[in-house]
């Protein structure tokens, strides 16, 4: 059971690192998704605010993912992960209800999938994993290790985010899937 909880925690953290890095590499695309949830017609300041919001969300994913992976004993980070994943489910739900088929840029340019039932289900699975990772781990010392291990994990986290960003950049040249005219 403990192994499963730890695996859920590590998997969600790696997922956050990948999605955060990929989103930062395709900010225009992700800002376009955030824009879907802003008022339909709005002035220039909304466009700027949307871009800032996109940067903040991607940065938050990176930061929370890195801290969750490298310092697993910190309890507050579990709540931060839970908050983020709740946000994903809400966004996926709203996207499914209002913007079905539009690109979600959930992993930047790494995926061209749009909002749909599958994205909602994926978000729900990630939320379930985040809830599981909030459960207390016994024995607690499992999550306490030396500074060297923390730093090694941090190096892994940086590598993961950088690799996701590089991969997303490489995929930016691909055309978006066109929607279907009803």
């Amino acid at each position: 059971m403990t192994t499963l909880l730890l695996a859920a925690k590590a998997a969600v953290a790696v997922l956050l690192l990948a999605s955060g890095g990929a989103k930062l590499a395709d900010l225009a695309g992700f800002a376009g998704t955030v824009r879907l949830f802003a008022p339909a017609r709005s002035s220039g300041w909304v466009v700027a605010a949307v871009r800032h919001a996109a940067v903040m969300i991607a940065a938050a994913e990176l930061m929370v993912g890195a801290v969750s992976l490298c310092w697993p004993a910190l309890t507050w980070v579990n709540l931060a992960v839970l908050t983020l994943t709740c946000g994903f489910v809400i966004a996926a739900g709203l996207g499914y209800a209002r913007h079905r088929g539009r690109p979600c840029h959930c992993f930047g340019a790494l995926t061209k999938r749009g909002f749909g039932l599958s994205s909602l289900l994926r978000a729900a699975v990630v939320l379930a994993a985040a809830i599981a990772s909030c459960m207390p781990v016994r024995p607690a010392p499992q999550l306490h290790f030396t500074l060297v291990f923390h730093l090694l994990l941090l190096a892994g986290a940086v590598l993961m985010a950088a690799a996701a960003a590089a991969a997303a950049k490489a995929l930016l040249t691909q055309p978006d899937s066109a929607g279907t005219v009803a």
Binding site: V14, L69, Q142, G156, L159
Partner: peptide
């Protein structure tokens, strides 16, 4: 620690997935 082993596998799987995408 067990967590470190699990985290290593999670990172390996994540990087492997990116490799497939690339």
């Amino acid at each position: 620690p067990v967590y470190l082993e699990i985290a290593q596998w999670a990172l390996l799987l994540g990087l492997g997935s990116l490799l497939v995408v690339l």
